[in-house]
Amino acid sequence: MGRSDCDGGDTSSAFSDCNSDRSGEFPSSGSPTTSSSSFGGGSGGGGDGGLHRLLVSGAVDYSHEVVRRLISDLESPSATVECQRRAAMELRLLAKHNPENRLRIAAAGAVVPLVALLSHPDPQLQEHGVTAVLNLSLCDENKTLIAAAGAIRPLVRALSTGTPVARENAACALLRLAQLDDLRTAIGRSGAIPPLVALLESGGPRAKKDAATALFCLLASRENKARAVEAGIVRPLLDLMADPDSGMVDKAAYVLNAVVEVAEGRAAAVEENGIPVLVEMVEEGTPQQKEIAVRSLLQICKESPIYRKMVAHEGAVPSLVALSQSATKKSKEKAEALIELLRQPKRTAGDSRR
């Protein structure tokens, strides 16, 4: 399977990969309050808490037998939910920071039983399973194993039904899998786009960022762009772009730029009053925001004289002229191309809106 960085240009400052296990519910390794009860049970005293502090730091050295025991606890039909929680949590933590651990855990056969937890009715156990799968997916070598174990559909379900942490980490795990070209379309066809759009619209700050990053990667597939438009992605993107306090302006602008590469996306952006938002970004945004806004306006205007008229009527030309005289070479070229489009003679008959 080919790997893609899901990059449509210089987006490194707008998007970054999901880190492992960012839920924050685990105390730090130096916390004096860390104990076995903080980690889902266990009968040990201070020594057991010390083990878990090592697990959190990723510094513990463990044997193949330890991992096999944890996997056996997950697979045993007689294991209690509490026992399974503890086993899943320990595998989750062992995979948290250490790339070698991720490879060793996957090689020991943990992927299939962890994927089975993604559909478990116990919310905490499902959350541990989702996050363990995310942590394992941070190694490219594990992604094919995870997909082959059938993780995509239950991860999509976790986006809608899981705890807030499970939903966020499911978005991150799907992002990691979507970095494989062959899986991107499969994830879209499994129904991931609508719950990611819902997370983008109504999730917390971290959930919105994770959803935007996952969507940006998935939208490298053309058919996923149409799915995103159908799921109503344009309105929340424009709302985020218009809200500097969201911390999401750049991310939302890049995702919108991917959406308007298809006719449905261009039509939706215009219908949702996206042109004023983009023109304002050209006028008042950062240099990076100005560039991506011009790129989106170019996409919108290329094949539609009607849309060009709307952009010109919004007062875009003075800001574009200023940008063409003072910006980077790439921004100048885009601004000049858009100015030329806007100055083309307007047709009065047979105009195509797309």
Rank of each mutant, 00 (worst) to 15 (best):
E127Q: 13
D181R: 11
R157T: 13
R176W: 10
P195D: 06
I152W: 07
G203M: 09
I193N: 08
P154M: 09
L114G: 01
L199S: 13
L125P: 00
I193L: 13
T163C: 11
L175H: 15
S137I: 02
C172T: 10
T161A: 11
T163S: 15
N169P: 00
P195L: 07
G203F: 08
A116E: 08
D122A: 05
V130F: 04
K143H: 01
A198L: 10
A178G: 15
A173Y: 05
A132N: 03
P123S: 07
V115N: 00
A186N: 08
D181E: 15
T185Q: 13
K143V: 13
Q179V: 03
L177N: 07
A192W: 10
D182K: 12
A178I: 05
L196C: 08
V133N: 05
R176P: 00
S119H: 03
D122I: 01
E168W: 07
Q126R: 15
S137A: 15
A149R: 04
A148K: 14
V133E: 01
A158D: 05
Q126I: 02
E141Y: 05
P113Y: 03
T161Q: 13
G191D: 09
A192G: 08
A147T: 12
V165Y: 11
R189N: 15
I187N: 09
L134W: 01
L138Q: 08
N169I: 00
A132L: 03
T161L: 12
T131M: 10
T161I: 13
A148S: 14
P194S: 09
A186R: 14
S190K: 12
D122V: 08
P121I: 04
A148P: 00
I193W: 08
G191P: 12
G150D: 11
N142I: 09
T144D: 13
A147E: 13
G188S: 11
L145Q: 14
P194Q: 10
A132C: 04
L174C: 12
A166R: 06
L145M: 12
L159T: 06
P154S: 09
C172Q: 09
G204M: 08
S160K: 12
A151R: 00
A147F: 00
K143P: 05
R153S: 13
A178D: 07
L177T: 08
Q179P: 00
S190T: 12
R157K: 13
A166E: 08
A149M: 05
P195Y: 06
R189K: 14
N142C: 09
Q124F: 03
K143G: 08
T185W: 04
E201Q: 15
V156G: 06
N135C: 12
A198I: 01
L183H: 14
A198D: 14
T163N: 10
I193T: 09
A173Q: 10
D140A: 13
